[in-house]
Amino acid sequence: MSRLTSVAGSTRAIRATHKTLSSPWATAGAIVIAALWTLPTFGLFLSSFRPAEDITTSGWWTFFAHPRVTLDNYAATLTATSGITVPQALINSLTITIPGALIPITVALLAAYALAWIDFPGRHLLFVAIFAMQIVPLQMLLVPLLRLYTGGLTVGGVAIFPGFAANSMSDGFAQVWLTHTMSALPLAIFMLHNSLSAIPTEIMEAARIDGAGHGRILRSIALPLAMPTVASYAIFQFLWVWNDLLVSTIFTTGKNAPVTKILADLAGMYGQQWHLLTAGTFLAIIVPLIVFFALQRFFVRGLLAGSTKG
């Protein structure tokens, strides 16, 4: 954290220096890269407003010579199906994402508070163990979890946990929420622990002397002070779950599929139906883009805290 604050403090001075260092060549180079990074996205975006036959017969750059605009592609996604329509898939995405972001943060908050503020033997070891669990790739978890959800867990011939639906994939969302929750916990606990343990001891002591218990302190002191981290982590988790394809490929049935899975199917099956793919893709990325632009500040802060351990 100290490094970040010093960054903020000296930014103005640095800016002054950089003015003198700045070179038009560097700016030109940056603009070239920015154009390269934006052009493919722009091409698809523009195409989504062109008539279907135009998209497949002429390049989007010819649009400027012969502009023809239509919303038909977006209308077509309302009815075009790969099992379900794109709008239904968007609702599925929201259904998966909201609990898939909220639940892990809450569970992680409870654990991180105890790890930061309740002293017990083995505390540090437990924290390190949870931190280390970040290394487990998602691919290690998929098959055993699938078996657990569908077949349950039996010990000595007795079902300890019967699964979400007897011997088949449940057509609910429980297995998707749960998988996202479990795989998110190590990073969530790590980030929240860093943030909670940065609260000055005096504040916590004062609250305890005033007679507040842990439950009370968590609600009225720790949570408000850790709110920036909670917010940035929530945004991450939201984007991560919304953009996920792997978990939903394994754990959703046809009618529960989120928009990423539908788009992947459309790209595979009707690889040439570009009028659906262009419009569908933009419907799918509009939500993360809104979240990103509205909450960019939190997003960047979370990124810095998460990867450089501020």
Binding site: N243, D244, I285, V291
Partner: peptide, 20 residues
């Protein structure tokens, strides 16, 4: 402009580039 792709899913990004 360069940061924006981070918020776009790799699925969306893949379709964008498949078109490219």
């Amino acid at each position: 402009l360069v940061f924006m792709p981070m918020s776009i899913s790799l699925v969306g990004g893949s379709i964008i580039w498949k078109f490219f």
